[in-house]
Design a protein around this nucleic acid. Structure first.
Length: 482
DNA sequence: AGCGGATTTTT
DNA sequence: AAAATCCGC
């Protein structure tokens, strides 16, 4: 039995629960040194809001680990160099890590494995971030799937492995290596503190993840199939995305819990299967991202490589980013994102369709903005879903499907509650006019204190024209490009 | 190789 | 009511 083992924490594995690498280390070594190394040299850095989450999730994880017996060591620098130092300091001969499938991390992990091999260190890598290893699901011909439904069918046939229990007790060596203070990692904003709205909305960490799940099962699971489309509903969606992103909750634990509920409570079976299917989309995105490391920069479909995106007018892009487009549902969504670091899924589709199709702006501009502002910014889900909406992705939305923001708004936020919450200057408008303020009769506008063009922007573009333009551009794609 | 099938819809 | 798409078997 090795005396001391190094357990490398990644930004996808901040939990004790169902953590195969940690459990194996606890089982196989006398002492464990858990260490998180913040390496900024990665090709794809964390977005700003996600850094806030990471900071607090690390603090929470450090508390959990200390309570279990082995406090977390924090380091900053090149992953390999820091591992080398820690191995020298602790005398560890075994390295445990939970596999991080992020494209930039794969290369680093491979380098780590080579280094370990050369230096006689045993390096053990475990899954845990996903239900399945992204490369284990293959079509009949051995290739990755590009359509969701057959992919998910194949997943369900295989069935995810059962989650493993939390290790009982960890044992740290007497002389633990020195650790940096969490603040030294520089994850919080240095100048203006923009984190107030995010902090008021979220509680990062493992215990909070399970608290949220318990609440959702009570309050939202039964109606999930219907309610998930209504952004004004508090418990319409699971709101677990950032927890899943940082490994604060295990997808396998979640999947298994839903399966148990479905078996015990037939009335909840449909909602449970639907949430599982959404986990399937997360798996599918990672399946794509691992098969195509350039997912965030290159369209999956070759006929989009020469697509005539309009170079966005900086002020137009800014209006979209800050929620000043003049389309209330879009502005509500973009402001929710800016304030809380999160946006409801249906609204994400509406604002993304608007950017890619109505504004005819390269989806990568939208992806980059989401990457910076979402607390759940995920290296696979974010680009995969942007490609899906833009029409250039796997199994993408047909190009002629252009969301009409006004119809979407009337259908899914009919009472305007979501709009009123995030676009307060429209709050006094009656339901019938809140989706299109500029078309309201002047008496109604006066009563509500709304002056289109002054207190709230006029629509930034004419949708009929924008729609024609988009259809023409999409139809003119060169099928042989690329 | 032809057919069944498909998250998020449109006018 | 129609579907301008195209994967997977």
């Amino acid at each position: 039995m090795p005396a001391t083992a190094l357990y490398l924490v990644t930004a996808q594995s901040l939990r004790l629960d169902d953590n195969p690498a940690l459990s194996a280390a606890a089982r196989e070594a006398a002492h464990i040194v858990p260490a998180y190394i913040h390496d900024d040299s990665r090709p794809r850095r964390l977005g700003g809001a996600a850094k806030w989450w990471l900071h607090h999730a690390l603090a929470d994880h450090a508390r959990d680990l200390a309570r279990a017996g082995a406090p977390l060591v924090l380091r900053q620098g090149r992953l390999l160099e820091e591992v080398e130092k820690l191995v020298a300091e602790t005398g560890a001969r075994t390295l445990y890590l939970q596999h991080d499938p992020t494209p930039g991390m794969q290369a680093m992990e491979d380098a780590l494995h080579r280094w370990a091999e050369e230096n006689g260190i045993v390096c053990r890598r475990f899954g845990g971030h996903l239900l399945f290893d992204p490369v284990e699901i293959r079509t009949g011909t051995g290739r990755p799937y590009s359509v969701f439904t057959p992919f998910w069918r194949a997943c369900l046939e295989l069935g995810p492995r059962a989650p493993i229990p939390t290790p009982e007790k960890l044992s740290a060596p007497n002389d633990m290596p020195a650790t940096l203070p969490l603040e030294a990692l520089g994850l919080l904003p240095k100048g203006v503190d923009w984190t107030g709205g995010i902090a008021a909305t979220w509680e990062p960490g493992e215990a909070a993840a399970h608290k949220r799940l318990d609440h959702f099962i009570e309050a939202g699971l039964k109606g999930y199939g219907h309610d998930r489309d209504y952004p004004a509903l508090e418990d319409g969606t699971t709101a677990l995305s950032p927890y899943l992103r940082f490994g604060n909750i295990s997808p396998r634990r979640l999947f298994a819990r839903l399966a148990d509920i479905a078996a015990m409570e037939p009335a909840l079976a449909q909602g449970a299967a639907h949430v599982q299917r959404e986990l399937g989309w997360r798996e599918f995105c990672w399946h794509l991202a691992v098969a195509r490391p350039d997912l965030a920069t290159r369209p999956i479909r070759d006929d989009f490589t020469t697509f005539p995106w309009q170079e966005p007018d900086t002020s137009d892009l800014k209006r979209w980013q800050t929620g000043q487009t003049g389309f209330p549902i879009i502005d509500a969504g973009m402001r929710q994102l800016w304030q809380t670091g999160w946006m409801h899924n249906r609204v994400r589709m509406i604002v993304a369709s608007f950017l890619a199709k109505d504004m005819l702006t390269d989806w990568r501009h939208g992806e980059a903005w989401f990457w910076d502002t979402l607390v759940d910014a995920d290296a696979a889900s974010n680009p995969a879903n942007w490609q899906w909406v833009a029409g250039c992705g796997a199994d993408a939305a047909p190009f002629f499907r252009i969301f009409n923001p006004t119809l979407q708004s009337a259908k899914f936020d009919g009472a305007g509650n979501y709009i009123r919450r995030f676009v307060p200057e429209l709050a006094a408008l009656p339901d019938a006019h809140i989706h299109e303020p500029h078309k309201a009769p002047s008496a109604v506008l006066r009563m509500a204190g709304v002056t289109p063009g002054i207190t709230y922007p006029l629509p930034m573009l004419d949708r009929t024209m924008a729609r024609e333009r988009a259809l023409a551009a999409y139809q003119a794609r060169d099928p042989l490009a690329g």
